[in-house]
Deep mutational scan, measured.
Amino acid sequence: MTEYKLVVVGAGGVGKSALTIQLIQNHFVDEYDPTIEDSYRKQVVIDGETCLLDILDTAGQEEYSAMRDQYMRTGEGFLCVFAINNTKSFEDIHHYREQIKRVKDSEDVPMVLVGNKCDLPSRTVDTKQAQDLARSYGIPFIETSAKTRQGVDDAFYTLVREIRKHKEKMSKDGKKKKKKSKTKCVIM
């Protein structure tokens, strides 16, 4: 069974824990209790493949930012979460993405942009803004509501699919490099 290491990042209060708990335990946590770091595991079937999701729910508070490099190193894919009623959390996505790329030393890291709290009427981040940002990053965008469960499975499952595509691409690139290195030079 394939294991996928997913990391949920975003500013404090955007609903990272609520999304994760909704996926794992099928219930909505409405009281806000700032996370330092929590880890969850769940076995699911995605596109006919049974897999184990190892999900790291991270601290959004700035005082825990020193811990970010460590979990970013171990993560295979990242859910970059903002709240649709919090423009600052949307603007912060850029910083999370840049930090992930720096730590992973790669421009090509599996990510999904997630606009959470889409059940709320007080939207300050337009869907088109988020779609445009995701398009500019070359990553999928999904709106979710941890409260109603809308888009929750889709967000995590899409990230797994992005990781699969990335692994497939990397193995193809690896095979191309191996083929090239088999060419021999004969000096007579």
Rank of each mutant, 00 (worst) to 15 (best):
T2K: 11
Y4W: 04
Y4S: 12
V7F: 04
V8D: 02
G15Y: 01
G15R: 00
K16T: 02
T20M: 02
T20Y: 00
I21R: 01
L23V: 09
H27P: 00
H27Q: 15
V29T: 07
E31P: 03
Y32W: 10
I36T: 01
Y40N: 00
R41Y: 02
K42R: 11
K42L: 05
K42A: 06
Q43N: 11
V44W: 06
V44L: 14
I46T: 13
I46S: 12
G48I: 03
L52V: 15
I55F: 03
I55V: 07
L56G: 14
T58S: 09
A59H: 01
G60L: 00
E63G: 10
E63V: 03
Y64I: 07
M67C: 12
R68L: 12
D69S: 07
Q70D: 13
T74F: 06
G77T: 11
G77P: 01
F78T: 02
F78D: 00
K88M: 05
S89Y: 02
F90N: 13
F90M: 12
F90S: 05
D92V: 03
H95D: 12
H95Q: 07
R97L: 15
R97H: 14
I100Y: 13
V103M: 14
K104D: 14
K104G: 11
K104Q: 12
D105W: 02
D105I: 09
S106L: 10
D108H: 08
M111F: 11
L113P: 01
V114K: 00
V114I: 09
K117H: 15
C118A: 12
D119Y: 08
D119M: 13
L120R: 14
P121Y: 09
P121M: 10
R123D: 12
D126P: 07
K128G: 05
K128R: 06
K128C: 06
Y137D: 09
G138V: 04
G138W: 03
G138D: 04
S145W: 04
S145L: 04
A146Y: 01
Q150R: 08
G151N: 13
G151Q: 13
V152I: 10
V152D: 09
A155R: 02
F156S: 02
V160M: 11
R164E: 11
K165N: 07
K169D: 08
K175D: 10
K176Q: 10
K178M: 05
S181E: 12
T183K: 14
K184N: 05
C185N: 14
C185H: 11
M188W: 06
